[in-house]
Amino acid sequence: MARRSGRRARRKRRKREGVAAVQSVTLSHEPPFVCLRRWLQKRGFSSRLLLPAHFSDTGRGLLSLTALQPGELLISLPESCLLTTSTVLKSYLGQYIKRYTVQVQACFNEVSRCYEVHSLQGCHKFQQAFICYGPHDNQRLLLEYGFVAPDNPHGVVYVEEGLLQKCVCAEGRGQLEQKLLFLKQHDLLQNLTFGVDGPSWRLMTVLRLLSLRPEHYPQWKSVLQGAAVSEETEQLSVLMAAHTCQLLLQDTATILDQISRLREQCDRVLREQLEVVAQLRQEEQGILGSSLDVLRRLQAHSQAE
């Protein structure tokens, strides 16, 4: 029988092969988790497969207590445990499950009346189990799961209809109500965003339509297809986008200042929640700053021509 290598030999082998050993420390003894576990157990939930832990490479996550097989049921959360997005149960779990890697499938089972999470790829014993949240921006992650993902590639800042009305240039205010009604009828006032690469195509299309002069109204279909109607319309739409971005930056700076003052006056629990909101706003501030740089380059290029 081959002799098993000891811990020191295994560490040497990992070092020789260039594989960094990932360390994990269980967090199941922490008071928030103890309270959560008791609350869940009263409502019929129990899990012996996963534990919250801190990993040396990724931070907090879920530690598998046994080897997980593809298709295995990891979590079955009774309907009585499901809460709304404004509560803490969901926010707490969200702190521990944060990865974009697709390794699980989650849905509500109408037969068992439980929210079930199944493994897709399996997981070795004492490794971290990941869940895929899909292409969500940080605002949606915060509202639905209670956490913000650093360097989220899907990060955007939303633009509301009321702000658009404030940013319409004098040249584009003709028949503003009719233009807005047209945009609503065609469902074009939803999901208007700024990203790190500038305003979205949808936002710029709306701004072009709002910038149209009466003589260009018959060309609205061309605008919806992304065509430039005139140089004047393009310049107005970029100007409106820059103005909108600046207003959002001012609003974000004001809110961050308010959050900073509130954190000095509140208790620890509220302070932690405010820190998450501040993190979201700081990310939005960076996105808006990048968008504004893009728009200013467009304006400079247009003026140079």
Rank of each mutant, 00 (worst) to 15 (best):
K12L: 08
K12A: 14
R14T: 10
V19Q: 08
V19T: 08
A20C: 06
S24V: 09
V25T: 02
L27H: 01
F45N: 00
F45A: 08
L49N: 07
P52T: 03
F55K: 05
G59H: 04
G61W: 00
L62A: 12
G71D: 02
S76Q: 09
S80T: 08
S80K: 05
T84G: 14
T84P: 04
T85Q: 07
V88S: 05
L89V: 02
Y92P: 03
I97L: 11
Y100Q: 10
V102H: 07
V104P: 05
A106I: 13
R113C: 14
H118F: 15
G122I: 12
Q128N: 10
A129G: 01
F130K: 00
C132S: 14
C132T: 04
G134C: 06
R140F: 09
L142H: 05
E144M: 10
G146Q: 09
V148R: 00
V148E: 09
N152T: 05
H154V: 09
Y158L: 11
E160V: 14
E160C: 13
E161V: 05
L163Y: 07
K166E: 13
Q175R: 03
K179S: 02
F182P: 00
D187E: 15
L189C: 04
G195I: 01
S200Y: 04
R202H: 14
L207V: 01
R208Q: 10
L209I: 15
H216I: 08
Q219T: 09
Q225Y: 11
S230Q: 11
Q235G: 09
L236C: 03
L236I: 04
V238N: 03
H243M: 14
H243V: 06
T244S: 08
Q246C: 13
L249Y: 00
Q250R: 11
D251I: 08
Q258D: 10
S260M: 03
R268G: 07
L270H: 13
E275Q: 13
Q279R: 15
L292A: 01
L292R: 00
L295P: 02
L295M: 11
